[in-house]
Design a protein around this nucleic acid. Structure first.
Lengths: 339, 339
DNA sequence: CCACCTCAGGTAAGCGCTTTCCTGGCGAGA
DNA sequence: TCTCGCCAGGAAAGCGCTTACCTGAGGTGG
């Protein structure tokens, strides 16, 4: 690997001069030397060693992102927003998948700290786990103490900049719509219990239903993985255990799609017999049949805002932005069947 | 940020000793000193500076990946495979999105070279663009000359390790099935012309049809972006321009889904009036109605194999692995309507 | 004509770490 | 008791780069 010294030698100048022309220092360099250096760079196909540069000049430029899984459509969208802003500001992203493993999440925080990232974005949902939360905050504090910026997406029990999807309000909107349509026996296909996303959405739904006199019983809730297969499993269980449901809410669209496949297989008419709703408004929601009624979350914006907070000027007061959810009415939810 | 020197000072040992206990050198260190160092590490919440480490010991551990867009489901799957193997081997991934911009792709190669990545994986389709190909190969050669490993996914005009999806064979399979079902007027919704993926799939299809006496006319092909909206646009054009088609092949599933929405909106029965097929077998393919007949590509394996090649021992002979495509018959393709 | 200023270019320190090589203290063998 | 060998620990070089500081040549004003 060619080094700056090689370039300087070949151009017949000092490393200082070579460095100056290569990264456009303010210090003027004679045209002839400049050209000699540039030629040497081209000849040797020289690329500066980014690590050496980082060591020599304390200018952090890369940003670390920890998500549950980039290939999950939810995070794919969020990541798109993160990427957009990062790219606009000339920042490189290191994306780490925690696969919902708290230990791995902790490890990645260390690793990104070691990489001297300028900012660190936690884009996965928070966990209900005090031990974990404490250890995480410990590590984040250590990072922030040395000037690192942190922004989280979702509810994380971390005092600092955060952007939150209006999970609870969104769920509430959906719950109210169901009640309005006459649904009284509603089942829920929920994600993992330990995620704040799950509890927030569930909470909103529960409150909306309770306020209208039809409390959500625990036996009408199934907790599974936040993916298509989890949704299918939960739907099977729910249909067997509580056959007289008139509506099912899946706490994300992937689960809803899984549930839909089960309903179709069992020949249950949607929405005539059972209404089905999702959450997130993933691209797929509009393409299944019947098209999915769901709660739209501005996922790309979530990412974009978080990155903007993280890269913007630090602020003594933690900033918390809540991005609104909207109900998207499509075909999978209808009036409750008359008894 | 605490440094190794800080740790050493606090523990009352030399930096050398501190370094030795921190990264488990083979050189023995007395138990007492070891403990003092570890305590200091904990107290100071010390994390070694990864860049300094990389500079001091020439051990590359991160791998660079260039894809078109991680949030596209195709690349999400491929990336999952890449991630899996990388994680197994303790490698960190830097994922770069080129958004199908050749210049950005070139830039990223430079950037990853500067990052001293151990290997570089090009996971997006190749381009039909000689100037670009030449410049890319130039840069890759420079990288490889200094010991960097390169693996590409898809056809790239790059001499070196590669893993290829059987695009052409897969398309052929599909073409033959259509012919068998009596289709004679087949339209194609294609991705961007400049991508080798497009031309390979198109080529396979064209050959299968031609061999059975129904050549694919150019006016039955529409080139659009490889996404849902592109598929929808192409479908509109195709239906208007060639109303008597009995089958449409979309060159990926996203486009097929877009086309399906157009067909549904126009009230065209699928597959009774027009059969529709996709490519890739994305998760969504099974969930639309009618479920999509498509060509399955082992996307996760594609990623996993590429990473395995890149991280395995170098080999003088370029290794090219072709991963097979299989036809997945679902409901969106049926017999051609009788005239 | 000389002192002084200016400025292009070079010298060298230092970023945080690893690792080679050296040192000094100890135990063992003669 | 003396010498030698061994080994834990430290000193220092060096990874590739940036940049503060220095130098010396050329130009200016008195």
């Amino acid at each position: 690997m060619a080094t700056l010294a090689d370039v300087a030698r070949r151009a017949g100048v000092s490393p200082a001069t070579a460095s100056r022309v290569i990264n456009g220092s303010s210090k003027p360099v004679a045209e002839e030397l400049r050209e000699r250096v540039l030629r040497a760079v081209a000849d040797l196909r020289y690329v500066p060693n980014a690590h050496a540069q980082l060591l020599a000049r304390p200018h952090r430029s890369v940003v670390g992102v920890i998500v549950h899984d980039v290939s999950d459509p939810y995070f794919a969208e969020v990541t798109r927003g993160l990427q957009r802003v990062a790219t606009e500001r000339g920042r490189l992203l290191i994306i780490c998948n925690s696969y919902r493993d708290p230990d791995r999440e902790l490890e990645y925080v260390e690793l990104l700290r070691a990489q001297q990232v300028a900012a660190l974005i936690l884009a996965g949902s928070g966990y209900h786990d005090d031990t974990f939360t404490e250890r995480l905050n410990e590590k984040l504090a250590a990072y922030e103490a040395t000037g690192g910026r942190v922004a989280v997406i979702g509810r994380h029990d971390h005092a600092g900049d955060a952007v939150m999807p209006a999970n609870e309000t969104g769920a509430r909107l959906l719950g109210e719509e169901l009640v309005r349509l006459g649904h009284r026996r509603v089942g829920v296909i929920a994600g993992p219990r330990v995620l704040t996303t799950t509890t927030d959405r569930l909470g909103g739904l529960r409150r909306a239903l309770a306020e209208h006199g039809c409390p959500l019983h625990d036996d009408r809730i199934r907790y599974e993985g936040f993916d298509r297969d989890g949704g299918a499993r939960a739907a099977e269980q729910l249909l067997d255990a509580v056959p007289d449901l008139t509506a099912i809410v899946a706490l994300n669209d992937s689960m809803a799609v899984g549930a839909l496949s089960v309903l179709r297989r069992r020949g249950v008419a949607v929405p005539e017999r059972i209404s089905l709703a999702g959450f997130d408004d993933m691209p797929i929601a509009a393409d299944v049949t019947p098209a999915l009624t769901t709660v739209r979350l501005p996922l790309v914006d979530l990412g974009a805002r978080a990155m903007t907070l993280a890269l913007g000027p630090a602020c003594a007061q933690p900033r918390v932005e809540v991005l609104p959810a909207t109900l998207v009415l499509r075909d999978s939810v209808g009036a409750a069947p008359s008894p």
